[in-house]
Amino acid sequence: MNKPLDKQLAELDIFSLLLFRAIFETGHANIAARQLDVSAPKVSRALASLRLIFADELFYRRQQGFRPTPLAEQIYPAIRELTDSINLLGMQLKDHQAFHRQECQVFDLAVSSGILTTLALEFNRREGLCPSVVLHHWQENTADRIHAGELDLGLALAPEPHTELSYERLCDAPGLCLVGAANHPIWQYTDICLEHICEYPFLCMNYPGFNDKVDPLELFCHREGLIPPTVLRVTDKEEWFGHLLCQHSLAFASPLEWGLLNALPGVEIKHLPAKEISRLHSGSAVPGLYLIEKPAHHRRYSPDDREKLLHIISLTLGLVTEDHPVNFSI
Protein backbone atom coordinates (compact mmCIF):
# COMPACT_ATOMS: atom_id res chain seq x y z
CA MET A 1 0.00 0.00 0.00
CA ASN A 2 1.41 3.39 -1.02
CA LYS A 3 2.00 5.96 1.68
CA PRO A 4 0.12 9.30 1.51
CA LEU A 5 2.13 12.00 -0.24
CA ASP A 6 2.55 14.16 2.88
CA LYS A 7 4.09 11.22 4.76
CA GLN A 8 6.44 10.54 1.87
CA LEU A 9 7.62 14.16 1.85
CA ALA A 10 8.05 14.07 5.63
CA GLU A 11 10.66 11.34 5.13
CA LEU A 12 12.87 13.73 3.16
CA ASP A 13 15.96 14.88 5.05
CA ILE A 14 18.16 17.90 4.47
CA PHE A 15 21.05 15.86 3.13
CA SER A 16 18.85 14.22 0.49
CA LEU A 17 17.65 17.63 -0.71
CA LEU A 18 21.22 18.94 -0.92
CA LEU A 19 22.26 15.78 -2.78
CA PHE A 20 19.41 16.10 -5.28
CA ARG A 21 20.44 19.67 -6.07
CA ALA A 22 24.14 18.78 -6.35
CA ILE A 23 23.49 15.91 -8.79
CA PHE A 24 21.01 18.00 -10.79
CA GLU A 25 23.49 20.90 -11.15
CA THR A 26 26.67 18.87 -11.72
CA GLY A 27 25.33 15.83 -13.51
CA HIS A 28 27.74 13.58 -11.62
CA ALA A 29 27.33 11.65 -8.37
CA ASN A 30 31.08 11.65 -7.63
CA ILE A 31 31.28 15.44 -7.93
CA ALA A 32 28.23 15.75 -5.68
CA ALA A 33 29.94 13.47 -3.12
CA ARG A 34 33.05 15.71 -3.12
CA GLN A 35 30.97 18.85 -2.77
CA LEU A 36 29.10 17.42 0.20
CA ASP A 37 32.21 15.70 1.63
CA VAL A 38 30.58 12.27 1.87
CA SER A 39 31.39 8.79 0.62
CA ALA A 40 30.07 7.28 -2.61
CA PRO A 41 28.06 4.59 -0.73
CA LYS A 42 26.24 7.30 1.24
CA VAL A 43 25.34 9.05 -2.03
CA SER A 44 24.02 5.77 -3.47
CA ARG A 45 21.87 5.10 -0.41
CA ALA A 46 20.43 8.62 -0.36
CA LEU A 47 19.69 8.55 -4.09
CA ALA A 48 17.92 5.22 -3.71
CA SER A 49 15.85 6.69 -0.87
CA LEU A 50 14.91 9.72 -3.02
CA ARG A 51 13.80 7.47 -5.86
CA LEU A 52 11.64 5.46 -3.46
CA ILE A 53 10.02 8.54 -1.92
CA PHE A 54 9.20 10.15 -5.27
CA ALA A 55 8.46 6.83 -7.00
CA ASP A 56 10.58 8.02 -9.91
CA GLU A 57 14.04 7.31 -11.32
CA LEU A 58 14.82 11.08 -10.99
CA PHE A 59 18.13 10.73 -12.89
CA TYR A 60 19.05 8.55 -15.86
CA ARG A 61 22.62 7.42 -16.21
CA ARG A 62 24.09 8.54 -19.55
CA GLN A 63 27.61 8.47 -20.97
CA GLN A 64 28.08 12.13 -20.06
CA GLY A 65 26.72 11.65 -16.54
CA PHE A 66 23.24 11.85 -14.99
CA ARG A 67 20.32 13.40 -16.87
CA PRO A 68 17.18 14.47 -14.90
CA THR A 69 13.80 12.93 -15.57
CA PRO A 70 10.78 15.18 -16.30
CA LEU A 71 9.73 14.92 -12.64
CA ALA A 72 13.20 15.96 -11.48
CA GLU A 73 13.03 18.97 -13.83
CA GLN A 74 9.65 19.85 -12.33
CA ILE A 75 10.63 19.67 -8.63
CA TYR A 76 14.12 21.21 -9.01
CA PRO A 77 12.99 24.89 -8.54
CA ALA A 78 11.24 24.08 -5.25
CA ILE A 79 14.22 22.05 -3.97
CA ARG A 80 16.63 24.82 -5.01
CA GLU A 81 14.57 27.33 -3.00
CA LEU A 82 14.50 25.03 0.02
CA THR A 83 18.25 24.40 -0.07
CA ASP A 84 18.97 28.13 -0.49
CA SER A 85 17.05 28.70 2.75
CA ILE A 86 18.97 25.87 4.43
CA ASN A 87 22.32 27.35 3.31
CA LEU A 88 21.27 30.79 4.58
CA LEU A 89 20.34 29.28 7.93
CA GLY A 90 23.73 27.58 8.08
CA MET A 91 25.59 30.83 7.40
CA GLN A 92 23.59 32.65 10.08
CA LEU A 93 24.40 29.90 12.58
CA LYS A 94 28.11 30.06 11.69
CA ASP A 95 28.10 33.84 12.17
CA HIS A 96 26.43 33.42 15.55
CA GLN A 97 28.97 30.79 16.65
CA ALA A 98 31.89 32.87 15.37
CA PHE A 99 30.68 35.88 17.37
CA HIS A 100 30.65 33.89 20.60
CA ARG A 101 34.00 32.25 19.84
CA GLN A 102 35.59 35.68 19.46
CA GLU A 103 34.35 36.57 22.93
CA CYS A 104 35.64 33.58 24.87
CA GLN A 105 37.50 31.09 22.66
CA VAL A 106 40.59 29.49 24.12
CA PHE A 107 42.75 27.27 21.91
CA ASP A 108 44.20 24.00 23.19
CA LEU A 109 47.65 23.54 21.65
CA ALA A 110 49.75 20.41 22.27
CA VAL A 111 53.52 20.95 22.01
CA SER A 112 56.56 18.68 22.16
CA SER A 113 58.81 19.00 25.19
CA GLY A 114 61.66 21.40 24.52
CA ILE A 115 59.43 23.93 22.77
CA LEU A 116 56.61 24.45 25.25
CA THR A 117 58.34 26.83 27.68
CA THR A 118 59.75 29.10 24.98
CA LEU A 119 56.41 29.16 23.19
CA ALA A 120 54.65 30.03 26.47
CA LEU A 121 57.01 32.98 26.97
CA GLU A 122 56.25 34.25 23.45
CA PHE A 123 52.49 34.00 23.97
CA ASN A 124 52.82 35.75 27.33
CA ARG A 125 54.81 38.56 25.75
CA ARG A 126 51.98 39.11 23.26
CA GLU A 127 49.06 38.76 25.65
CA GLY A 128 46.08 40.63 24.25
CA LEU A 129 47.52 40.65 20.72
CA CYS A 130 46.90 37.00 19.89
CA PRO A 131 44.31 34.30 20.70
CA SER A 132 44.31 32.83 24.21
CA VAL A 133 45.91 29.40 24.41
CA VAL A 134 46.29 26.53 26.84
CA LEU A 135 49.51 24.61 26.19
CA HIS A 136 49.68 20.85 26.69
CA HIS A 137 52.58 18.39 26.45
CA TRP A 138 52.51 16.23 23.33
CA GLN A 139 51.88 12.63 24.41
CA GLU A 140 51.24 9.27 22.79
CA ASN A 141 47.47 9.82 22.55
CA THR A 142 47.60 13.49 21.51
CA ALA A 143 46.87 12.89 17.82
CA ASP A 144 43.75 10.92 18.80
CA ARG A 145 42.68 13.78 21.08
CA ILE A 146 43.07 16.29 18.24
CA HIS A 147 40.96 14.05 16.01
CA ALA A 148 38.32 13.74 18.75
CA GLY A 149 38.15 17.53 19.14
CA GLU A 150 39.58 17.61 22.69
CA LEU A 151 42.59 19.58 21.40
CA ASP A 152 42.72 22.05 18.53
CA LEU A 153 46.15 21.48 17.01
CA GLY A 154 49.65 20.30 17.79
CA LEU A 155 53.31 21.11 17.24
CA ALA A 156 55.38 17.95 17.47
CA LEU A 157 58.79 16.53 16.67
CA ALA A 158 58.46 13.73 14.07
CA PRO A 159 55.02 12.54 15.25
CA GLU A 160 53.47 9.23 14.31
CA PRO A 161 51.08 9.74 11.33
CA HIS A 162 47.31 9.76 11.84
CA THR A 163 45.23 9.13 8.71
CA GLU A 164 42.46 11.58 9.69
CA LEU A 165 44.74 14.57 10.41
CA SER A 166 46.82 16.91 8.26
CA TYR A 167 50.57 17.18 8.82
CA GLU A 168 52.65 20.12 7.67
CA ARG A 169 56.42 20.14 8.15
CA LEU A 170 57.34 23.62 9.35
CA CYS A 171 61.12 23.22 9.61
CA ASP A 172 63.96 20.92 10.52
CA ALA A 173 64.50 20.44 14.24
CA PRO A 174 66.35 23.61 15.34
CA GLY A 175 69.77 22.13 16.16
CA LEU A 176 70.90 20.50 19.41
CA CYS A 177 72.60 21.55 22.61
CA LEU A 178 74.58 19.38 25.00
CA VAL A 179 73.63 19.75 28.66
CA GLY A 180 75.41 18.50 31.77
CA ALA A 181 76.51 19.48 35.25
CA ALA A 182 78.88 22.44 35.26
CA ASN A 183 81.61 20.26 36.83
CA HIS A 184 81.16 17.39 34.35
CA PRO A 185 84.48 16.18 32.84
CA ILE A 186 83.05 16.44 29.29
CA TRP A 187 83.69 20.19 29.33
CA GLN A 188 87.46 19.63 29.35
CA TYR A 189 87.28 18.88 25.62
CA THR A 190 87.67 21.85 23.29
CA ASP A 191 85.85 20.14 20.42
CA ILE A 192 83.21 17.81 21.82
CA CYS A 193 82.25 14.94 19.53
CA LEU A 194 79.67 12.16 19.75
CA GLU A 195 82.32 9.63 20.80
CA HIS A 196 83.09 11.77 23.88
CA ILE A 197 79.41 11.93 24.77
CA CYS A 198 79.04 8.14 24.46
CA GLU A 199 81.56 7.65 27.28
CA TYR A 200 79.03 8.83 29.87
CA PRO A 201 75.46 7.91 30.90
CA PHE A 202 73.01 9.56 28.55
CA LEU A 203 69.75 11.08 29.75
CA CYS A 204 66.83 10.87 27.35
CA MET A 205 63.56 12.78 27.49
CA ASN A 206 61.04 10.73 25.55
CA TYR A 207 59.46 12.35 22.49
CA PRO A 208 56.53 10.13 21.41
CA GLY A 209 57.00 8.99 17.82
CA PHE A 210 60.64 10.16 17.68
CA ASN A 211 62.89 8.58 20.32
CA ASP A 212 60.50 6.72 22.62
CA LYS A 213 61.72 3.38 21.23
CA VAL A 214 65.36 4.10 20.36
CA ASP A 215 67.29 7.36 20.59
CA PRO A 216 69.36 8.68 17.64
CA LEU A 217 72.50 8.42 19.82
CA GLU A 218 71.89 4.69 20.26
CA LEU A 219 71.45 4.32 16.49
CA PHE A 220 74.70 6.23 15.95
CA CYS A 221 76.55 3.80 18.21
CA HIS A 222 75.15 0.80 16.33
CA ARG A 223 76.18 2.31 12.97
CA GLU A 224 79.69 3.13 14.17
CA GLY A 225 80.25 -0.15 16.06
CA LEU A 226 80.55 1.66 19.39
CA ILE A 227 79.39 0.41 22.77
CA PRO A 228 76.26 2.47 23.42
CA PRO A 229 76.09 4.46 26.63
CA THR A 230 73.75 3.62 29.45
CA VAL A 231 70.52 5.36 28.46
CA LEU A 232 68.29 6.65 31.23
CA ARG A 233 64.78 7.52 30.11
CA VAL A 234 62.71 10.07 32.03
CA THR A 235 59.49 11.97 31.43
CA ASP A 236 59.72 14.54 34.23
CA LYS A 237 61.90 17.66 33.94
CA GLU A 238 62.76 17.74 37.66
CA GLU A 239 63.94 14.13 37.51
CA TRP A 240 65.92 15.05 34.39
CA PHE A 241 67.58 17.95 36.26
CA GLY A 242 68.36 15.70 39.23
CA HIS A 243 70.07 13.09 37.04
CA LEU A 244 72.19 15.75 35.36
CA LEU A 245 73.54 17.01 38.68
CA CYS A 246 73.85 13.75 40.62
CA GLN A 247 74.54 10.98 38.10
CA HIS A 248 77.10 12.66 35.79
CA SER A 249 74.64 12.17 32.96
CA LEU A 250 74.60 14.14 29.72
CA ALA A 251 71.57 15.10 27.65
CA PHE A 252 70.55 16.79 24.43
CA ALA A 253 68.19 19.75 24.47
CA SER A 254 66.66 22.11 21.96
CA PRO A 255 68.36 25.50 21.46
CA LEU A 256 64.91 26.94 22.14
CA GLU A 257 65.47 25.96 25.80
CA TRP A 258 68.81 27.78 26.02
CA GLY A 259 67.59 30.73 28.09
CA LEU A 260 65.78 28.51 30.59
CA LEU A 261 68.55 25.91 30.97
CA ASN A 262 71.29 28.53 31.15
CA ALA A 263 69.54 30.02 34.19
CA LEU A 264 69.55 26.72 36.11
CA PRO A 265 72.23 26.61 38.85
CA GLY A 266 75.01 24.09 38.40
CA VAL A 267 74.23 23.39 34.73
CA GLU A 268 76.40 23.94 31.65
CA ILE A 269 74.97 24.09 28.13
CA LYS A 270 76.80 24.27 24.80
CA HIS A 271 75.72 24.03 21.16
CA LEU A 272 76.53 20.71 19.54
CA PRO A 273 78.59 21.41 16.40
CA ALA A 274 76.70 21.11 13.10
CA LYS A 275 79.15 18.43 11.95
CA GLU A 276 78.25 16.23 14.93
CA ILE A 277 74.52 16.78 14.39
CA SER A 278 74.98 15.65 10.79
CA ARG A 279 76.83 12.54 11.98
CA LEU A 280 74.09 11.82 14.52
CA HIS A 281 71.40 11.75 11.84
CA SER A 282 73.53 10.20 9.08
CA GLY A 283 71.56 7.66 7.08
CA SER A 284 68.19 8.87 8.33
CA ALA A 285 65.97 11.85 7.68
CA VAL A 286 66.64 14.94 9.76
CA PRO A 287 63.80 15.15 12.30
CA GLY A 288 61.40 17.99 11.72
CA LEU A 289 58.77 19.97 13.56
CA TYR A 290 55.25 19.34 12.29
CA LEU A 291 52.00 21.22 12.59
CA ILE A 292 49.16 18.74 13.16
CA GLU A 293 45.52 19.73 12.61
CA LYS A 294 42.14 18.49 11.57
CA PRO A 295 41.23 19.01 7.89
CA ALA A 296 40.30 22.65 7.23
CA HIS A 297 36.54 22.05 7.09
CA HIS A 298 36.54 20.44 10.57
CA ARG A 299 38.50 23.11 12.45
CA ARG A 300 36.70 25.23 15.02
CA TYR A 301 38.98 28.24 14.51
CA SER A 302 38.97 30.77 11.71
CA PRO A 303 41.77 31.20 9.14
CA ASP A 304 42.52 34.58 10.75
CA ASP A 305 42.98 33.05 14.22
CA ARG A 306 45.09 30.29 12.67
CA GLU A 307 47.36 32.84 11.03
CA LYS A 308 47.86 34.65 14.34
CA LEU A 309 48.70 31.41 16.16
CA LEU A 310 51.14 30.30 13.47
CA HIS A 311 52.83 33.68 13.43
CA ILE A 312 53.66 33.28 17.14
CA ILE A 313 54.91 29.74 16.48
CA SER A 314 57.05 30.87 13.54
CA LEU A 315 58.54 33.70 15.63
CA THR A 316 59.42 31.23 18.38
CA LEU A 317 61.07 28.86 15.90
CA GLY A 318 62.96 31.72 14.24
CA LEU A 319 61.24 31.13 10.89
CA VAL A 320 60.25 34.79 10.56
CA THR A 321 60.99 38.18 12.08
CA GLU A 322 58.46 40.69 13.33
CA ASP A 323 58.30 42.43 9.96
CA HIS A 324 58.19 39.36 7.72
CA PRO A 325 55.13 37.14 8.26
CA VAL A 326 55.12 33.62 6.91
CA ASN A 327 52.38 31.96 4.86
CA PHE A 328 51.35 28.46 5.85
CA SER A 329 49.18 26.23 3.71
CA ILE A 330 45.55 25.74 4.64
Rank of each mutant, 00 (worst) to 15 (best):
V133W: 04
E293L: 04
W187P: 15
H297M: 03
S112E: 00
H271L: 13
R34S: 12
P77W: 04
R61T: 08
I330H: 08
F123E: 04
M1Q: 09
E276V: 00
A120F: 02
A29D: 05
P295N: 10
L119Q: 04
S39K: 15
Q35T: 10
E195A: 10
V320R: 15
D172M: 02
C193M: 12
A156H: 00
H147Y: 15
Q102L: 14
R299F: 08
T230K: 15
P174W: 00
L260W: 14
R101N: 14
E122Y: 08
Q92C: 09
C104I: 09
K7R: 14
L129M: 12
W258S: 05
H96Y: 14
G283W: 06
A253Q: 00
E127T: 13
C221Q: 02
A274M: 11
R126D: 01
M1N: 07
V111D: 11
I269R: 02
P287Y: 04
T142S: 12
E268F: 06
H222G: 05
I31H: 07
I79P: 08
I146T: 05
K213Q: 15
R279Y: 07
Q35F: 10
D13H: 08
L109I: 15
Y301R: 09
L52M: 11
H311N: 09
G27E: 04
L58K: 01
I197E: 01
I277H: 06
P325D: 00
V111Y: 12
W138L: 00
V320P: 01
A32V: 10
L226P: 10
S282P: 08
H196E: 06
L244I: 02
P273W: 06
S16P: 04
T142M: 08
E293F: 01
R51L: 06
A181W: 00
